[in-house]
């Protein structure tokens, strides 16, 4: 693991010959919105023509999503990664997150092990039994040396969903009482969503 996860080296981005680990660090900084314009451009440029880099980028995103929510993670599958990689290569310009708001940095503890460790964490994350209650360390400890494929969750209809909002809505519907419609109508509204208790 990174010996200094809080302050990963920044100058790796411009080095074309940078090792995979350093490159992964750069990606992490990119995701966390910590790079300046020039650094961003350099990374995005490399993502535009480097297939391996693209896959790494997508995996990192999967890991982040998996850490934040098993529901979001369930959208990801092996096919998803491949498709997104393809799409990324066709349209490298979509990768300009310079203006992204700062997100909780769930990735850095993973870096720069990258490669198999990241893939293992993704596989674990997809089937993550509980969300925030599981600490990153626990996940790493449970990562198998040779990840085995897990059952791919059938992708739900992809619409604009915030897993966080879904959780609150699930809790809200338990106690909200419609007066004019049948009592179960709040469940109609959230029926496509998870149950709050799912996965606990």
């Amino acid at each position: 693991m990174n010996s200094d996860p809080v302050n990963p080296s920044r100058n790796v981005v411009s080095t074309e010959s940078a090792g995979g680990d350093e490159f992964a660090q750069g990606l992490s900084c990119l995701l966390d919105g910590e790079l300046d314009g020039a650094e961003c451009r350099a990374l995005v440029e490399r993502l535009g023509h480097d297939e391996h880099a693209c896959r790494q980028w997508v995996l990192l995103n999967c890991v982040g999503d998996a850490m934040r929510s098993a529901d979001v993670a369930s959208f990801h599958s092996h096919g998803f990664v491949a498709r997104v990689s393809e799409a990324l290569q066709r349209e490298p310009t979509v990768l300009a997150p310079a203006a992204l708001p700062r997100r909780p940095s769930v990735r850095r503890w993973l870096l720069p092990g990258a490669g198999a460790a990241v893939a293992a964490a993704v596989l674990i994350g997809v089937g993550l039994p509980s969300r925030q209650s599981l600490s990153p360390e626990t996940t790493v400890a449970r990562a198998p040396a040779a990840p085995t494929p897990t059952a791919v969750v059938a992708p739900a209809a992809v619409i604009d969903r915030s897993p966080r909002l879904e959780r609150y809505l699930a809790a809200h519907r338990e106690l909200a009482e419609p007066t004019l419609m049948p009592h179960s109508t709040p469940y109609v509204r959230t029926s496509g969503a998870m149950l709050l208790q799912e996965g606990r």
Binding site: A156, A157, P182, H183, V188, S191, G192
Partner: peptide, 10 residues
């Protein structure tokens, strides 16, 4: 008493 069966999703 009520039974609600969503017809889509899981």
């Amino acid at each position: 008493h009520e039974r609600l069966q969503p017809m889509d999703g899981r």
